[in-house]
C-alpha cells in the first residue's frame, strides 16, 4: 500500500518538472537559442506534446516554421527588462522571419507603440546588410523593441520556410544566429 501511495504521489508531483525537463534533452542549442525539432510533429513523444500544449499550442512543424527561443543573453544571463540589449546579426535564410519578445508568462509586452516584434519585411537593415534591434524599456533610435516593465523575458525567432541548413540539427548548432548582447543595466 505504501508503495502505491508513495509512487502515485511522486508521479503526480513530478509531472510539471518532468514536462519542462525531458524535452530539453532533445533540444538543439546554439548560444542562447534553442529549439525542439519535434514541436508540432506527429512523431513527438508524450513529453514534448505536453510541453507544446503548455508552452506553444498550435506550433507548426519544422518544414513550415522553426521556432528558436532564447531566455538568456550571449553570456547566459537571464533576459530582464531592467537591462538594455542589442539583438544583432544577419538576416537568416528563410522565406520570412520575425523576432518577438515576450514577458515571463509568454505574452506580448504592453507598450505605447504597440511594437512587439521586427520582421524581415519591416526591419531597417544596416548599410552592410546586417540588422540591429534595441531591446530596451526606454526610447532608442532605430529598431526599438520596447521591453516594458516585466521581470524576465524571452525572445522568439520564427523562421518561416527555413533554408535546408536550419533543418539539420548539426548545422543549426554551429551556424551564426543573431547575438543577444547586454548593453547596460539600469539598476
Amino acid at each position: 500500500m505504501i508503495v502505491v501511495v508513495a509512487g502515485t504521489s511522486a508521479g503526480y508531483f513530478t509531472v510539471k518538472p518532468v514536462v519542462n525537463l525531458i524535452p530539453l534533452w532533445s533540444n538543439v542549442k546554439n548560444g542562447p537559442w534553442s529549439t525542439n525539432f519535434s514541436m508540432g510533429s506527429t512523431g513527438a513523444n508524450p513529453y514534448v506534446r505536453a510541453w507544446v500544449a503548455e508552452n506553444g499550442l498550435m506550433a507548426l512543424n519544422k518544414s513550415e516554421v522553426i521556432y528558436l527561443d532564447a531566455y538568456s543573453d550571449d553570456d547566459a544571463n537571464p533576459l530582464v527588462s531592467s537591462c538594455d540589449y542589442i539583438i544583432q546579426g544577419r538576416a537568416p535564410d528563410a522565406r520570412w522571419w520575425d523576432i518577438t519578445v515576450y514577458d515571463q508568462d509568454g505574452f506580448l509586452i504592453a507598450n505605447d507603440q504597440d511594437r512587439y516584434s521586427f520582421s524581415s519585411t519591416d526591419i531597417t537593415f544596416e548599410p552592410d546588410g546586417s540588422f540591429k534591434i534595441h531591446l530596451s524599456n526606454t526610447y532608442q533610435q532605430g529598431n526599438w523593441l520596447p521591453s516594458g516593465n516585466t521581470k524576465t523575458m524571452s525572445i522568439y525567432l520564427r523562421l518561416h520556410n527555413p533554408g535546408p541548413a536550419y533543418l539539420d540539427a548539426r548545422t543549426l548548432q554551429t551556424m551564426e544566429l543573431p547575438h543577444i548582447i547586454k548593453e547596460s543595466s539600469q539598476q
Partner: peptide, 17 residues
Amino acid sequence: AVAVAFIVNLALVIRIP
C-alpha cells in the same frame, strides 16, 4: 514505488495535450 511513479507520471502527461 519508482515503477508506480513512472506509470502515474506518464498517464498524467499523456492527458495534458
